[in-house]
Amino acid sequence: MSTKTILSPYETVQEARNPKRNGIAEYIGELFDDFVELHGDRLFRDDPSLVGGMASFHGKTVMVIGHRKGKNTKENIEYNFGMTSPEGYRKGIRLMKMAEKFGWPVITFVDTPGAYPGLEAESNGQSNAIAQSIACMSALKVPVISIITGEGNSGGALAIATADCVWMLEHAIYAILSPEGFASIMWKDASRAPEACEIMKITAKELKEFGLIDDIIPEGDKGMKQLDAMIGKALKRLEKNTPEQLALNRYEKFRNLDGRCWSL
């Protein structure tokens, strides 16, 4: 698909879900010279819907964390369609803490229909895991960059997106929940998802205008090259801060992100 194409919000949702889009495997392969995957939450199990590991970015060691979707049904079942369980988020927390300990920047790739709404996920504390992940990320004393590459739905996306820089691919979406879920809650009719997409304001362009994301990355090879340059530049800029200042700046960012939607 040409990057010039202007898509409607609903077409954007479909493109964001296209299994042919670049996923975590492509981003890791294209952007990093080396990657060592690290598994498990040290509490219960390894959640394959969330990938994490140490990587080399132009010779610099970073921690990479991201949702993993499958390219086909078999893979999707294995990766639970990119819907992460508490164990996945707890693995993420473990790796973020490790990165902080060694002073490595954290780079996350967001692509999830939402956190997994399952029986075991609830029993194991899905809410707790997401809350802990957000809290951990908000106070990390290393640079944090998050890239929303496809679907960024609900707390399941936000859990790994409380970052100094939040970027979106041009045809990615970032939403409070899936448009189908939204239509189901608001109008008790999931088939009104296309209408929901218009109201929800979930495209990169709209969210950039709101100031809720920091930048938009073009689709395709051009975007990958640009992303590489953007990461390099952002890390250079962020690393000028002291570790304490980094955490404070991130706190202030999310403290003031709503640009005073409220009044007193």
Binding site: A175, I176, M200, F210, L212, L257
Partner: peptide, 10 residues
């Protein structure tokens, strides 16, 4: 919408 989701982080 997303303004509300961001309150989770805040």
């Amino acid at each position: 919408g997303l303004f509300s989701l961001m309150q989770m982080s805040k």
